[in-house]
Amino acid sequence: MSKTTFVVGLDGSDAGARALAFAQDRAKAVGDCTIALCYVIEWSPFSFQTPEENEQRHKRREEEIELAHSRVVDPAVTAAKAEGFDVVGIVKHGDASEILDAIAKERGAAQIIIGRVGTRGLRERIFGGVTGRLVASASVPVTIIP
């Protein structure tokens, strides 16, 4: 177990890649450091579903996790490992800001690093983006990469 852990939020976009690049820079400076690469699949237990969706849910969930690993997380983990970093990849369902904070708490992370995604849509305007909510509720320092 290394001394410092950084939790990095990935979403498959450039913003996520920028966050990872920043985390790698910091990890080099710190030295003994683990980078936890997290991909959160947006999901709420309080949504409404059809019986057919419920029947398929378990299967879909596995597929979603599989896809997130193969498309986003695993390539990033492999690339970072090749550069000599200590990296773990995590995929979870839920609210991105809550999950990132929960992982940070669980692993005793020093900080959370995420890329800023431009706000769009009505939902974001009313409830604030993931970044906004994370900053407002996180229990560890958050670094936002523009």
Partner: peptide
Amino acid sequence: KGDYSDPNDAGEVSHFQALTTALSG
């Protein structure tokens, strides 16, 4: 409310979803 739901089961069909699906029928 999900008080007894295992966080590791996030993404699976929740009690709320099963109830509301049945209710809409």
